[in-house]
Design a protein around this nucleic acid. Sequence first.
RNA 1: UCUUCAGUAGCUCAGUCGGUUAGAGCACCUGACUGUUAAUCAGGGGGUCGUAGGUUCAAGUCCUACCUGAAGAGCCA
Length: 469
Amino acid sequence: MEKISRKKIVDILKYSSEVGVKINVKGWVRSKRGNKNINFIALNDGSSILNIQLVVEVEKFSESLLKSITTGACISAIGELVASQGQGQSLEIHVDEIQVYGEADPLTYPLQKKGHSLEFLREIAHLRPRTNTFSAVLRIRHAMAYAIHKYFNDNGFFYMHTPIITGSDCEGAGQMFQVTTLDLTNISKDKLGEVIYDDDFFGKPTSLTVSGQLEGELGALALGAIYTFGPTFRAENSNTPRHLAEFWMIEPEVAFNEIQENMDLAEDFLKYLTQYALDNCSDDIAFLNEMWDKELISRLHFVANNKFVRLSYTDGVAILEDAVRNGHKFEFPVCWGTDLQSEHERYLVETHFNCPVILTDYPKEIKAFYMKLNEDNKTVRAMDVLFPKIGEIIGGSQREDDYEKLKGRIEDMDIPIKDMWWYLDTRRFGSAPHSGFGLGFERLLLFVTGMSNIRDVIPFARTPKNAAF
RNA sequence: UCUUCAGUAGCUCAGUCGGUUAGAGCACCUGACUGUUAAUCAGGGGGUCGUAGGUUCAAGUCCUACCUGAAGAGCCA
């Protein structure tokens, strides 16, 4: 083969189209069609959703070589880049040389050029990045991860790495996966039947983190503004299109921010990310809009350009009670003091306001111990950002910075205070008002990609009874 | 975990009220076509109807259990 440097298809089609020049492309065959004189190969190298068309004159190549080029095969091709004679694409390559790197036996290769369900693709998660849909999702996933770091870096936040293995079982966000090196077939127990952890790796029970928030607060009360962005684990038996056992979470935490500034940050952050996706992932988003969700692009524009509605839990309940009086039927009753059901949140977001909603000031009984108590002594400075279709995309709060009040809340909730001494110390020494929130990365991706199942926006989903690949 | 729905060819699906030999498109094989656009056209091969029981003269179709998947709910991000 001639020594001609390889070009990425995205660069050829989007940036440098030097017509008349010989170039080399390498990628995977999406489809081959044609007749006995001429073949057309749609080649994709993952650099974008776009394919380049290879034009192959049949007489120039051996029958066996052309026969081995099937959907899914990996090839390298050299030829002249020319303006296309056909409709449907502006450029194409008239191929002189082809090398087949890897064949894909069409009888056993699971992917075809037509019609796969997302459910089927989940069963072949090792191959689904080869599809248009998943390559698009994965490129957007990358772009969003980059945009998150860029946003925080540009706004003076420091990226803080909070521990993945935690010794505190009071992070307050659900069931945890235990981490142990004990021999599970031979556990030592004391006279009361309790497991003896002295010989475990850390000499105490440990788990995978369910949130980096508590450590994040320590960072914010030293560096001013930090964020975490890392894997998070919940051992809940949740079987829904919105839950994963292993997911990625972004948790900014800012000293001196009160609840209003926390809301400002959350709204600005989400709008920035939405606009970044529109600006930088337009081909992939256009594909997903066409293929899966015809309202995707308009929804992204709407969120990027409209103010979120902000209202208190109390006002939200009043709206829901009004709706009930006007004949709207909910499965669950609405009353002040109970947590809002999914149907209630959906009514506010999708029916009443038809806009993202930030709900604040929830009753203290239904929220976590670390949230700052309001003057009414009944509500806390919590905020949930609710999005259409996805529901809660962000949960956050202003944190309780008063030592005595925080200690009281910990005791009220029967959290072992001896494990919380380091957290309480931040309120003993140089305490400050501060706020933060958690954004579920995959929920953000549900919104940005228009996909409807969270298992389709992460390369390898971890859900109850499923840890394949 | 609860409720509901689904499981038929490698993939996507149809299959009427329980009735004779279970169909289509794609993929694969053979052939046609001088530029296709998930190419098209003609022909061909390909099925333990999720598994196990049961009802019936007769079950892809009805019943029971289980397995798997999905949607809704709970928990939450």
